[in-house]
Amino acid sequence: MSDLEEDCQLGAESEEEDCELSDGELQEAFTKGLLKPGMNVPLEEPKKAANNVEGLKKCLAEFKRNLAWVERLDLTNPPAEDIVAKAEGRAELSQGGDQIDADDDFQREMFFYRQAQATVLAALPKLNKLQIPTKRPEDYFAEMAKSDQHMQKIRKKLIQKQMAMEKSEKAKKLREQRKFSKKVQVQVLQKRQKEKKNMMTAVKKYQKGMSDKLDFLEGDDQGKRAGAGAPSKPHVNKKGPNAKRKFKDSKFGFGGKKKGTKWNTKESYDDVSGFRAKVAHGKAGKKFSKGGKNKRPGKETRRKMKARK
């Protein structure tokens, strides 16, 4: 390193040491008003917007061309009449838009819409006067901005989405049908249990003599007939047997006492004249066996007979 470079470094270090002040010295300088803005941090002044009207007019005159209105199609209009405010009885905003709040999106967009509406209303008569068509012809053809492959992909996605929606709707209907069928099944089971309970109650009443009606034997047919409005036969209270029963009683009689006819008495117990020993010991029916007498002797008998020979 040369002597000149060493002197430059030493001079820079000495300047830095001179610039570095203690906290106490800085506070004392601040109280005396020696510290001012811009001494340590450079301040940038705000840019001033220059409204050079003459220069703007000169630039406009350079590129301005005296063309017909058909070539320019420029219109400057105030917004159209606010029909909604007029119908509601509200005060209409100023045509210049001074009363419109720029931060209110609805008011701002409505102002733009009304201004565009006024421009269309002013431009259409001019275009019709100049015999310029304003509607698209029926045979108008314009090339699609997107390719056929892209449109096919979109079509496939739309079809898939539609199929998923149909599948979801079908599953939803199926779930509703299952819920309805389950509800109907529960109602049918409850109805059967109720009918069974009513029938058992009627049977118990009939057994206990509390009722002489046998309508529960007919089941649901009678209820259906009665519900359908069919004329029912008048109930006849039968106090005695019918004609058929009376005829059989007169022909065959009542048959006498049947309960306890086989019970032993003292006389039947002492009477042994009808006792048969063979019948009592089961020997009476041997001669009436199915196969009769066995003509062929048994195997052991046949073996002994052979041995004797």
Rank of each mutant, 00 (worst) to 15 (best):
residue 86 K to G: 04
residue 148 D to H: 15
residue 126 K to N: 00
residue 163 M to N: 11
residue 118 A to I: 03
residue 133 P to G: 05
residue 150 H to Y: 12
residue 132 I to D: 07
residue 110 M to K: 06
residue 90 R to Y: 03
residue 76 T to Q: 13
residue 100 I to Q: 04
residue 169 E to S: 11
residue 85 A to W: 09
residue 127 L to Q: 04
residue 90 R to H: 09
residue 91 A to Q: 03
residue 160 Q to G: 09
residue 108 R to I: 13
residue 104 D to V: 09
residue 112 F to I: 06
residue 116 A to T: 05
residue 57 K to D: 10
residue 129 K to G: 04
residue 79 P to V: 01
residue 153 K to A: 11
residue 98 D to N: 01
residue 72 R to P: 05
residue 84 V to K: 00
residue 100 I to N: 05
residue 93 L to R: 12
residue 56 L to A: 05
residue 152 Q to I: 07
residue 163 M to E: 15
residue 170 K to G: 08
residue 109 E to M: 03
residue 151 M to N: 14
residue 115 Q to W: 06
residue 141 F to T: 10
residue 131 Q to S: 09
residue 114 R to H: 07
residue 57 K to I: 09
residue 164 A to R: 12
residue 98 D to Y: 06
residue 146 K to G: 01
residue 142 A to D: 06
residue 166 E to D: 12
residue 118 A to K: 07
residue 130 L to G: 00
residue 61 A to P: 01
residue 105 D to L: 01
residue 140 Y to G: 12
residue 131 Q to K: 10
residue 75 L to C: 05
residue 136 R to Y: 11
residue 110 M to S: 05
residue 103 D to M: 12
residue 76 T to P: 00
residue 100 I to L: 07
residue 79 P to L: 06
residue 89 G to D: 11
residue 96 G to A: 04
residue 112 F to N: 02
residue 56 L to Q: 03
residue 148 D to M: 14
residue 103 D to W: 10
residue 96 G to V: 04
residue 83 I to L: 09
residue 143 E to F: 05
residue 57 K to A: 12
residue 109 E to T: 04
residue 138 E to P: 02
residue 101 D to F: 03
residue 112 F to H: 03
residue 154 I to H: 13
residue 136 R to P: 01
residue 82 D to Y: 01
residue 61 A to Y: 13
residue 67 L to G: 06
residue 131 Q to C: 00
residue 168 S to I: 12
residue 162 Q to W: 02
residue 107 Q to C: 08
residue 124 L to Y: 00
residue 90 R to K: 12
residue 94 S to P: 13
residue 160 Q to F: 02
residue 62 E to K: 00
residue 59 C to W: 13
residue 85 A to L: 14
residue 107 Q to F: 04
residue 117 Q to C: 15
residue 61 A to K: 06
residue 125 P to M: 15
residue 159 I to Y: 03
residue 91 A to D: 10
residue 79 P to E: 04
residue 130 L to P: 03
